Measured scan of single mutants.
Amino acid sequence: MQNSHSGVNQLGGVFVNGRPLPDSTRQKIVELAHSGARPCDISRILQVSNGCVSKILGRYYETGSIRPRAIGGSKPRVATPEVVSKIAQYKRECPSIFAWEIRDRLLSEGVCTNDNIPSVSSINRVLRNLASEKQQMGADGMYDKLRMLNGQTGSWGTRPGWYPGTSVPGQPTQDGCQQQEGGGENTNSISSNGEDSDEAQMRLQLKRKLQRNRTSFTQEQIEALEKEFERTHYPDVFARERLAAKIDLPEARIQVWFSNRRAKWRREEKLRNQRRQASNTPSHIPISSSFSTSVYQPIPQPTTPVSSFTSGSMLGRTDTALTNTYSALPPMPSFTMANNLPMQPPVPSQTSSYSCMLPTSPSVNGRSYDTYTPPHMQTHMNSQPMGTSGTTSTGLISPGVSVPVQVPGSEPDMSQYWPRLQ
Rank of each mutant, 00 (worst) to 15 (best):
M142F: 15
V16C: 12
S65C: 13
L149V: 13
S119R: 00
A88K: 04
K91E: 06
C40D: 00
V78S: 01
S54L: 03
E82R: 13
A33W: 07
S43L: 01
G141L: 12
S49G: 00
R69T: 05
I97Q: 15
R103D: 04
R44Y: 07
A88G: 06
N9M: 03
L107K: 15
N129F: 05
C112A: 06
K134V: 11
K145D: 12
D23T: 11
Q47T: 04
N17G: 05
E31H: 07
D23N: 10
S65E: 13
S108N: 13
A33M: 10
D41K: 06
N114G: 12
A139C: 12
W100R: 15
P81V: 09
I42V: 07
N116L: 11
R44G: 06
M142T: 10
L32F: 09
A99G: 14
I117D: 08
I87F: 03
G73T: 02
S4D: 10
G36F: 04
M148L: 10
V126D: 01
Y90W: 11
F98Y: 13
T80M: 04
V8K: 07
V14C: 07
V84H: 04
A131N: 10
R44L: 04
F98A: 07
N9Y: 05
N3F: 12
S85K: 13
T113Y: 09
S96R: 14
S4K: 11
V111C: 08
R69W: 06
I66D: 00
S119D: 00
N129K: 15
I97R: 15
R147F: 12
A33I: 07
D41Q: 13
R19T: 05
F15V: 03
R105N: 09
G141C: 13
S49T: 15
Q10P: 02
Y90K: 07
R128V: 05
V16N: 11
L146H: 14
P76E: 00
S54E: 03
I42R: 00
I66R: 05
E62W: 03
Q27S: 08
E93V: 07
L130V: 13
L149K: 13
R125Q: 00
S74Q: 04
D115L: 13
I87Q: 00
D144F: 08
S85P: 02
Q135Y: 10
R67Q: 12
R59A: 04
E62R: 15
A37W: 12
L107M: 14
N50W: 00
L46F: 04
G73M: 02
I123S: 01
A99E: 00
I56H: 00
R103V: 07
H34G: 12
A88M: 07
V48F: 04
I45R: 13
E101M: 15
R77G: 03
L127Q: 07
L130N: 10
I29G: 03
S119Y: 15
L127Y: 07
R69S: 06
R38G: 03
S121A: 05
T63V: 04
D104E: 14
K55T: 04
P95I: 08
S6K: 14
V48R: 01
M148R: 14
Q27P: 00
W100K: 11
S132M: 11
R44D: 04
N129H: 14
P81G: 11
Q2Y: 09
V84I: 09
W100L: 06
S6P: 09
R77F: 02
P95A: 12
V8E: 04
S43M: 01
R105C: 12
S85L: 09
R103H: 07
A70Y: 06
N9F: 00
R92W: 10
V16Y: 14
G72K: 05
E93Q: 11
E82T: 15
P118F: 03
G12P: 01
K55N: 04
I29R: 01
Q27K: 13
P118L: 07
K86F: 11
S121Q: 07
S132E: 07
V120T: 14
F15P: 03
L127W: 15
E101H: 07
R67A: 15
L107Q: 15
N17R: 15
L107T: 15
S65L: 05
R77S: 06
H5R: 15
I87T: 08
V83R: 04
K86H: 14
G12M: 03
R59T: 05
A131T: 07
A88T: 10
R105L: 13
E93M: 11
L21I: 04
V14D: 04
S108T: 11
I29D: 01
